[in-house]
Amino acid sequence: MTNIGSLENKGIEALISSKNIDDKGGFSWSTELNIGMNRNKITSLFMGRDVAGSNSTQLHRVGQPVQSWYLNEWAGVDPENGDPLWYTADGKTTNNINLAERRIVGNSQPKFTGGLTNTFQYKGIGLSVFFYAVTGNKILNRTRILGDADGAYFGYGYDKLTAENYWRKPGDIADRPKPVPGGNKNANSALSTRYLENGSFLRLRNINLSYSLPAKWVRAAKFTSVKLYAQAANLATWTSYTGWDPEQDINAMEFFRYPPSKSITFGANINF
């Protein structure tokens, strides 16, 4: 184990808090907005050489961010014969992925992260709503490789042969190549931007609704305070990502990753 390089990180985190309405007729509303951004860059490596990331689809290169995606670039489907196509170094296309040029095509880390919380109070009723967002990252959807395998997994029932827009006849402009038993020239197909997707998302992370019982009721029951609440987590996510969950770790490579569960809980806080 050796330190063979150096890395530079520059970023900004900002938090804005506001009291939009402050106890007007028993009603108050406050907002918190936080935004973060980080830009990292590899400034040196041993002899300036590239270093493979934790898997064969990512690369460390001087001048580039850590965990840069290093993939063949998908060029679509040949309308004449339904073959998959990738770009070569001279900008032409080939149906042989081994002749394609691997390139840095994005990064697994988000450019921006942010959160927005709105809190409302009206007499004994409280409501808090928290949204979380990420943008600017890319995810390698390896789960989709089984569904869009162009016939490689006929026997396992993974292939989307009932899906729309796969190649059927010459002249078709299709999203998916012609299905062929064993796969249509898709050796090492994971090493392609065909399965690299935008990882941006907006998630309704948490909603909390509470009610504090009136003081006279609480005193009559010989308590100090009583608060009833209901809380919901991960109720909704808005994203163009087609996999299980757009919220990923730094590798951002999904293969049947278990998504966060939606939950609703109820409870009471009682102080004596």
Rank of each mutant, 00 (worst) to 15 (best):
V66S: 05
W69I: 05
W69K: 03
Y70R: 05
W74E: 02
A75F: 05
G76D: 01
P79S: 10
E80T: 11
N81T: 11
G82M: 07
G82D: 04
W86Q: 04
W86E: 05
D90C: 01
G91I: 00
G91W: 04
G91Q: 03
K92T: 15
N96L: 06
N96T: 06
I97V: 07
L99P: 00
E101M: 11
R102M: 12
V105R: 02
N107T: 15
P110W: 08
P110K: 07
K111M: 10
K111N: 14
G114W: 06
G114E: 10
G115S: 14
Q121V: 13
G124T: 12
G124K: 10
G124W: 07
I125E: 00
L127Q: 03
L127T: 07
S128Q: 12
V129H: 12
F130V: 11
V134E: 15
T135S: 15
G136C: 09
I139V: 15
N141C: 06
I145C: 06
L146H: 10
L146N: 14
D148F: 04
D148N: 08
A149S: 15
F154W: 14
F154K: 05
G155W: 00
G155T: 08
Y156L: 13
Y156F: 09
Y156S: 13
Y158Q: 08
D159Q: 01
E164A: 10
W167R: 00
R168K: 15
K169S: 14
P170C: 06
D172T: 01
D172P: 03
R176C: 02
R176S: 10
K178W: 11
P179F: 11
P179C: 09
N188P: 02
S189W: 09
R194Y: 11
Y195I: 03
L196F: 12
E197P: 11
S200R: 12
F201A: 12
